[in-house]
Design a protein around this nucleic acid. Structure first.
Length: 604
DNA sequence: CCCCCCCC
């Protein structure tokens, strides 16, 4: 296989542009002659950086790989001699040197013998060399291009500002290209998050600050304003809007205090220029990486994630006293649910907790929330987290449809990790499985699995249908007869009579197959319509009446929520299916769900 | 120049 490299592109990227930055969006095909990790001078440099020698077959040039593409190297997707289509690059002038940054690439072939005989380019930084940087012997099919202007040439310029901007700043830098060694840059970025104004007071003094997260299509960066600058910029910068920003200070980011992947952060100063931009094409909206609520178990405590859910419940405003500062902090707990059938609690703090007032089960998208382990899994807002009520995104529409069709009526699993005797959750109509599928997918073998099924009782084991239990509330332990008394070991008490409780083993079937399900007292009460005490009494008094109760209970159809778990009994390991919830079919509800489904087909 | 992200 042979490749046509985009000859001339190295010379072009390497030659000094009329101004500082040049962003190249036309794809070009290049060969990577070398991929090398470079350690920058700063000890605070937290991310590896890779230097890549790119070749267009005629010349070679040095480039840096944008850090968000580092995984291409670490995963072995690119290496020496890889031929790749570079989809986006930027070329900046840094201390009289050209800095080419690769922002996007597609691998065409991993290992190809060196193409052509690429030569070094003349040193652009050499005094007086600027006129000679495009070698005359290189035919360049790609003419040098003026730097990217604040506004796309094809779109109408917004009134009165594009001209002032372009004359004042010349060119737009990608956020990824910012570093402390550059000045005279302008970024065009969206404010994706804006904090409240925070006041502080410590030994070193007192003051106030606020911060924003800025995003363009290359990266994100945090920006912070202090004291008097707060008064100027806090009203000016609005979440969701796009701004030209220049003349801010670029500092090394303190990684401990930010979950953004950027080595730098901005400090807004008195002379920092901020101007709203109405031409917002090419400036992405927030990108989410949603985790289903069922997947929170997979995430480590204290990690951050994005979730989207329906607010099933919003607790009233409350407050906590911080142990660290003994300050009172307002908080509000939201209970989120999603299609995965799980619910999780999420905590809002401060102003956000106070001002929350959506009472109509809105969809909310959260970005960068903290994963906690309270109640198995919990979520909490950071000051850098964002919360968007009823966002205009596809995931939100699907959730809305699902919830209005049937989510509102179902119950949900919580993440309570404790191996409690308690139920795992409720029937989930949209996640219903058939019995043969449950066996074929071996639910419950690796870990505990939950499923919902609709099935009909075929047979109930009639021996051992109940056990004598301790009558103490919530004890439920088996009691043993001692003389005319029944003794509970756990409560260390004796009773004149036990309270019988059901322990049910039954075969159920649906159209696909059958399974044995185990259930406790609530299941027995549901299928027999009487307490175990009553049924035991009936059995002892009149066996044919007992048999008719058993008979009547079979051939009934229920919605089941079940928990599949492996256990070993008498040296035999098998998966047992415990019923966590049984509900008789409510035809009105079933019809409502079907109607909802017809109205909201996307809920599928 | 903050840097806490809280509690059950």
């Amino acid at each position: 296989m042979s490749f046509q490299l985009t000859s001339g592109i190295c010379a072009r990227l390497h030659s000094p542009a009329p101004s500082d930055a040049d962003t190249l969006n036309q794809p070009c095909t290049l060969q990577l002659l070398s991929v090398k990790k470079v350690s920058l001078a700063s000890a605070n440099q937290p991310t590896d950086r890779y230097r890549i020698i790119i070749s267009d077959g005629v010349n070679y040039a040095q480039a840096m790989l944008a850090t968000q593409l580092n995984n291409y190297v670490t995963e072995g997707r690119i290496a020496k001699n890889t031929v790749a289509k570079l989809t986006k690059m930027t070329s900046n002038s840094v201390q009289d040197k050209r800095l080419i940054i690769i922002l996007g690439l597609e691998v065409l072939a991993l290992d190809v013998p060196k193409i052509g005989d690429p030569k070094a380019l003349p040193d652009a930084s050499a005094p007086g060399s600027s006129t000679a940087t495009t070698p005359s012997n290189v035919a360049s099919p790609v003419p040098p291009r003026p730097p990217m202007q604040p506004s796309n040439q094809n779109t109408p310029q917004p009134q009165n500002q594009a001209t002032s901007k372009s004359s004042r700043h010349g060119s737009i830098y990608p956020i990824e290209g910012l570093s402390p060694y550059q000045n005279n840059w302008t970024i065009k970025a969206r404010v994706t998050q804006k904090s409240d104004i925070k006041h502080w007071s410590n030994q070193r003094g007192e003051g106030k600050l606020f911060s924003v997260t800025l995003m363009d299509d290359s990266a994100e960066i945090k920006g912070t304003a202090f004291n008097t600058v707060v008064d100027d910029l806090y009203p000016k910068l609005e979440e969701g809007k796009v701004y030209y920003i220049s003349k801010a200070r670029v500092n090394l980011a303190k990684k401990k205090f930010s979950n953004l992947t950027n080595d730098y952060e901005l400090s807004f100063e008195k002379h920092t220029e901020v101007e709203e931009c109405h031409e917002v094409s090419n400036v992405p909206m927030v990108k989410y990486n949603f985790v289903p609520l069922s997947g929170l178990e997979e995430l480590a405590k204290d990690s951050t994630c994005d979730v989207i859910g329906i607010v099933k419940e919003a607790a009233p405003l409350s407050e906590i006293i911080s142990k660290a500062s003994s300050r009172s902090i307002p908080k509000r707990e939201l209970t989120l649910v999603d299609k995965s059938g799980f619910s999780v609690r999420l905590t809002l703090w401060g102003k956000q907790a106070e001002s929350y007032n959506a009472d109509d089960a809105p969809v909310i998208a959260f970005k960068g929330v903290k994963v906690g382990d309270f109640g198995g899994r919990s979520l909490s807002m950071f000051s850098s987290s964002t919360m968007t009520i009823n966002p205009d995104i596809e995931e939100a529409f699907a959730l809305r449809g699902w919830y209005d069709a049937y989510g509102a009526d179902q119950s949900f699993h919580s993440h309570s990790s404790a191996v409690s005797t308690n139920t795992g959750g409720g029937f989930n109509r949209s996640e219903m499985r058939n019995l043969s599928d449950i066996k074929e997918s071996q639910l419950g073998t690796e870990k505990v699995d939950y499923f919902s099924a609709r099935a009909t009782i075929m047979h109930i084991k009639s021996d051992n249908i109940s056990y004598p239990a301790c009558p103490t509330q919530d004890c439920n332990k088996k009691v043993v007869q001692e003389g005319d008394q029944w003794r509970c070991e756990k409560c260390d008490k004796s009773f004149p009579r036990p309270e019988y409780r059901y322990i049910i083993s039954m075969a159920v079937a649906d159209w696909s197959g059958q399974a044995w399900l185990q259930g406790f007292n609530d299941v027995g009460v549901a299928i027999f319509g009487m307490t175990a005490n009553d049924l035991v009494e009936k059995r002892d008094r009149n066996e044919s009446e007992f048999n008719s109760v058993m008979q009547k209970a079979t051939c009934q159809t229920y919605n089941f929520a079940c928990r599949a778990k492996q256990d070993t009994y008498n040296d035999q390991t098998r998966v047992r299916y415990g019923i966590t919830k049984i509900s008789p079919l409510d035809y009105k509800e079933e019809i409502a769900a079907l109607v909802g489904l017809l109205r909201s087909p996307w809920a599928l």
